[in-house]
Design a protein around this nucleic acid. Structure first.
Lengths: 197, 197
DNA sequence: CAGCGCAGTTAACGATGACTAACGTAATCG
DNA sequence: CGATTACGTTAGTCATCGTTAACTGCGCTG
């Protein structure tokens, strides 16, 4: 699968070997789950075979760790940045929705892996990822609290998680073209949040 | 262990051994992924150990298969029933939302497994599950098409998937009490669908 | 051009996993 | 009452998996 990334710090088509491996691994993890993929499968996906991966990563766990940490970091920093740059609360929320939607559309495998494989992380990596995710959620909670008047913080947090679920449905949602899908998801997300009270 | 059964027909809290195993397996699969769980783990979770499971299931794959097929069947038949019984389109949609929400709230592990482990199914089981899921989606597509005027069928299908993602976020969404969560999700889902145009 | 290090190879090892075999026991029933 | 059946047990098999070891060639650089 080709990646047509327009994301932050966009790398050209050819990436470093490490990133090439991570991308292939993400695809495989998303399809079969972390334990459903062998080291040889990942190697084969990038044209080298098996143990050669250990020239680039300390272990299979380390691949997943690096993958999830970089996703979480990208989401958090990108989200924070965009929310801060917006001129009013309702625009901040719209920006967040757009940002997250685009990320999910551009990186379906990464989103899938992040959604499903937190539990396969080593303890310390999991802690780090969870911390980043929590910070990202707080960016949303802030934006929601500011944009929809009278909502409690807990409801805002729940609503944020629910909207993540909505937007992360992207990988399994290929019935309309991706620009139309982006527009539809945007509308749905804001409609939902607007209805949160 | 004694069984505190309310009667022969009553499938209340106490279940048959098969179902007990399936419930335990669902919990484990949800937490660690299909391949992350050993046959011994499942056995231990119900107080017997390892190979004894083969008295009840042909294989580990068969457990997952039975699990996913029964979930999909329950969702489809329950959804169809409720949608048909509703007196007008907008009530049908509200019924569907309530039904799905309650299912997700009552069976977080099952929902998680169904969301994540379709790819670990054996080919024939996967076909069956996909067929059931497609039928369930069509129930929603019908309800959405009838309730929100002017929406295309493709958009309705995309919206349905998105709302599933929203409602299925339940397992990771425990910030407010479950009755409040149910109410919030209901509101969010209908708000989203209402905004789908 | 000697030499070093990067990036790859195949072979092996120990652990673990799904599943089978062989066996035991208590209840059911003809 | 004897046999069958249901439901367990432990021990073993065989494949597979993550990882390491030992080795090889290529491209820099001093």
């Amino acid at each position: 699968m080709m990646q047509v990334s327009a994301g932050p710090a966009a790398q050209a088509v050819p990436t470093t070997r490490r990133d090439q491996i991570l991308a292939a691994a993400a695809e495989l993890f998303a399809a079969h789950g972390f334990h459903g993929v062998g080291i040889d499968d990942i190697g084969a996906a990038v044209g080298i075979s098996g143990p050669a991966l250990y020239r680039h990563f300390r272990s299979k766990d380390a691949m997943l760790g690096e993958m999830l940490i970089s996703i979480s970091r990208g989401l958090f920093s990108g989200g924070k940045e965009r929310a801060a740059a917006a001129e009013d609360p309702s625009k901040a929320l719209a920006e967040l929705v757009t940002f997250h939607t685009n990320f999910a559309l551009d990186n379906p495998a990464l989103i899938t892996v992040q959604e499903r494989n937190l539990g396969n992380l080593r303890e310390d990596d999991r802690k780090q990822v969870r911390a980043l995710q929590r910070q990202y959620v707080e960016v949303w909670v802030g934006a929601i609290s500011a944009a929809v008047p009278g909502i409690t913080e807990e409801r805002a947090r729940s609503a944020a998680h629910a909207v993540f679920g909505l937007l992360n449905s992207t990988p399994h949602n290929r019935y309309v073209g991706s620009t139309e899908l982006a527009e539809l998801l945007h509308r749905l997300a804001l409609g939902a949040l607007h209805a949160a009270r």
